[in-house]
Design a protein around this nucleic acid. Structure first.
Lengths: 239, 239
DNA sequence: CTATAACGAGAGCACCGCTCTCGTTATCAG
DNA sequence: CTGATAACGAGAGCGGTGCTCTCGTTATAG
């Protein structure tokens, strides 16, 4: 019985803490099922409780509030998306920058199409007023890190000499330390382009998923290919 | 008393229909106030009724359901945003393409910052599962039309000869008839770029508003200037 | 072995969207 | 002018929600 409640994190040694962990995962699984089928707005603690056969008040032994459960689901979803993008990109030869970019972007879109409600939870309207309690940002940056690595590797492989138009004082509007940590070999005057490409990928996916391409884009998959190639050009990826 | 209930739309001739229109606007005003202050998720019909001093059931004489009220607010918000962008862009000399683009994009961002909950309602997670009942799309396209006009005017002013990279069969993934109606003087192989620029603007605003630039962008206004100039380059606007 | 704390169940509170009934009142046709 | 009709507002009510509190029970730890 080495369960150290006071020091670090919890070890599932005793029967009770083991049961607790199992309960938590059971609750999250039922909640994730509801989330996937009917969206975050209609996720009901009472129905989760009903589904797993406990009183609704019992849920509050594990999640203090509905939003706390939702936050846990958010973290899980970020990790799922991140893992999906990571594994997709990992199989491409490291030197083929444009293909790595394509594959990673496709993985984002594919995951979004496969889990639209989860994607909406991550990149749609924030749940209460504000979230991201430091717990989330680690998981959230996984997919960003993959895209960043590609851009950074590309910069190392073929350093472009001509500066980007109108660089301005990058430190005036970007967190250069933070960005430089992810893109150490990218010239600072290209940071903005990398951020633009990143947000444009998610902007396209969001527009597709939320119906804003209605009446203009008829084949979203092909259009997306066009978009990510355009962005690859902007980023100066090879091929 | 020319009130034609059966033919076209309603004229406020009788005292009753006039009162009805006033009631509708009163309800919408109270609902819009709640929406602006606490967001669409916590808009309550009962509180709207309480606020304007009627029974909650009376609201249902004017809006069959909560989502119907929300849809009305969506349409109003689209029109507000559209009008805001239109008036902002109208004051710029027609020949200054890049400045027109800048001003229009800034108007989008400014409106979003001033009405974050309304913006979230328009470009965040869709309310139920799907909306846009043909009523909305007209209002929604007002801002798109402004941006489209700029791109189209620019294409007419300085027709670029070199084709965009890898145009492919545009008709294979875009509604060319629809897009050509908005961009008649733009070469079809540049449609995708226009769409990309459009969605990137909203992608950037959405990321800023929803907190996804946390840790990378420190001055969103300056960064946005950088983004819209980058997109202006992509679109081949002058200056 | 005993005190403590985690636990589940259940009742309950205040709210929600929405429905239904019922008396009132404006409207319109004859 | 009169009477049928339909819009209207109020109120009660239904089933649902998130969340709180109490109260036995049971596993844990000293």
């Amino acid at each position: 019985m080495l369960s150290k409640w006071h020091s670090g994190f919890v070890m599932a040694t005793t029967t009770r803490s083991a049961a607790r962990l199992e309960r938590v995962t059971t609750i999250k699984a039922a909640a994730a099922c509801q989330l996937a089928s009917r969206g975050a707005a209609s996720l009901s603690l009472r129905e989760v409780a009903r589904e797993i056969g406990v009183a609704s008040s019992a849920i509050y032994r594990y999640f203090a509030t509905r939003d706390e459960l939702l936050t846990a689901l958010i973290t899980d979803a970020y990790n799922e998306l991140g893992a999906s993008v990571e594994t997709a990109e990992a199989v491409v030869a490291r030197s083929r920058m444009r293909e790595r970019w394509r594959v990673a972007c496709r993985a984002v879109r594919s995951w979004a199409l496969a889990h639209p409600h989860d994607y909406a939870l991550l990149y749609g309207t924030p749940v209460p007023d504000y979230r991201a309690p430091t717990n989330t940002i680690g998981a959230a940056s996984r997919v960003t890190r993959v895209l960043g690595r590609i851009v950074d590797d590309a910069a190392a492989a073929s350093p472009t000499t001509e500066p980007a138009r109108e660089p301005g004082d990058v430190a005036g509007y970007l967190d250069v330390d933070n960005v430089a940590a992810e893109l150490p070999r990218v010239a600072p005057d290209r940071y903005a382009r990398a951020l633009l490409a990143w947000s444009s990928v998610f902007g396209s996916v969001t527009f597709e998923l939320f119906g804003h391409f209605e009446g203009s884009v008829t084949n979203a998959a092909t259009y997306f290919e066009r978009v990510i190639d355009e962005l690859a050009d902007l980023l100066g990826l090879g091929d």
